[in-house]
Design a protein around this nucleic acid. Structure first.
Lengths: 182, 182
DNA sequence: TGAAAGTTTCAGTATGCTCTGAAACTAATG
DNA sequence: CATTAGTTTCAGAGCATACTGAAACTTTCA
């Protein structure tokens, strides 16, 4: 790196730092996010030693988190001809990134809740069956469960649609919305 | 609670448990989520002692988390005539819930990133200015920053729209997107 | 105003997540 | 096959966050 790229390096470092700080909010650990950010801002493939040096983490830590990121599908292993090391690159198409994250989060967060909602409803129905309109508390509760379910499914469908139409679709949709919203 | 509501109670307990388990993923603590769930499934207002008893937590813990939930705008204090205690109820309109959460998360997660993206771009521009189309690495990097920014703004606008149109409009927006995509 | 009821705060403790570093393992090469 | 380069695993240490319980504070009522 020449002196001419000082600002560029600093810029990348800033991005990595901020990305890492956001990790808490996403329920993933800081290092994992930082590694992802490092790969995202790197135009060249990056190896484990690079990660260790740039982020000041141990080999074990780097290895574990790289593996997790690969499992998530957020980064890929690449091999460089004539080099024995493994290198990694990030998905740089933000749209693909979005799709990957959405798929994972749905599996981990939305689906278990939908499942639970269904079970809760079933159980509650025992106490609020057709005969006992007299149990308004149970009915109100079930109504809330249903609302939640409907909501989750509606938003899920929306997101599916977004993923499907991709960057081109959303560009048009959002610019249209921008105009509408002023 | 009569014996007849055993299944109902169990149903509520299940919902609370699952909601709490999801808390990690949302970057909030388990107890806070459980309290919210408890209020969400309760048709009657709930007081601090109820929370302590149902969730087996200390007074301090209950108090702190109730306060946080009020700060977030996810629950409200209510006063019951003739009773000195403070009671709480949850927002039960899931769309309102959605709006509240979206507003908070945007402030905490999206806006800092947009800010950082802008700063990163500025810094990088020093090394990739008009004269040096020779620095392809810097250009590629900036391209990624721009893509990310565009993406975040587009999705943000999309979410705004969802919030605005609410439960009834979601179907219409979907079909609109379908048309644009198709 | 004093007593009673209720709420908040916070220092110390407990819990659980993350990280390290070294050993075990695997794959490539001569 | 032995050697070397590279990767993964994991027990234990370190760190950060959440929780408790008791004391301080506030509000209400007689």
């Amino acid at each position: 790196m020449s002196a001419a790229t000082a600002a560029l390096d600093e810029s990348r470092a800033l991005f990595i730092r901020r990305w890492g700080e956001m990790a808490n909010y996403w329920g993933i650990n800081r290092t994992m996010a930082e590694i992802h950010a490092l790969l995202f801002v790197s135009t060249e493939p990056v190896c484990t030693d690079d990660v260790m040096a740039r982020l000041q983490v141990s080999r074990g830590n780097a290895s574990m988190n790289l593996r997790s990121l690969v499992d998530w599908g957020l980064i890929q292993r690449v091999h460089i001809r004539g080099d024995r090391k493994e290198y990694f690159t990030a998905l740089t198409d933000v749209w693909q990134l979005f799709e990957t994250i959405v798929r994972q989060r749905r599996r981990r967060e939305v689906e278990p809740i939908l499942e639970t909602l269904a079970r809760c409803r079933e159980m509650a129905a025992q106490d609020a069956g057709p005969k006992s309109a007299r149990n308004p508390s149970a009915r109100a509760y079930m109504q809330r469960l249903d609302d939640m379910e409907k909501f989750l499914k509606a938003v899920g469908a929306m997101v599916d649609l977004l993923v499907k139409v991709g960057p081109r679709g959303i560009g048009r949709v959002s610019s249209m919305i921008m105009k509408l919203a002023g």
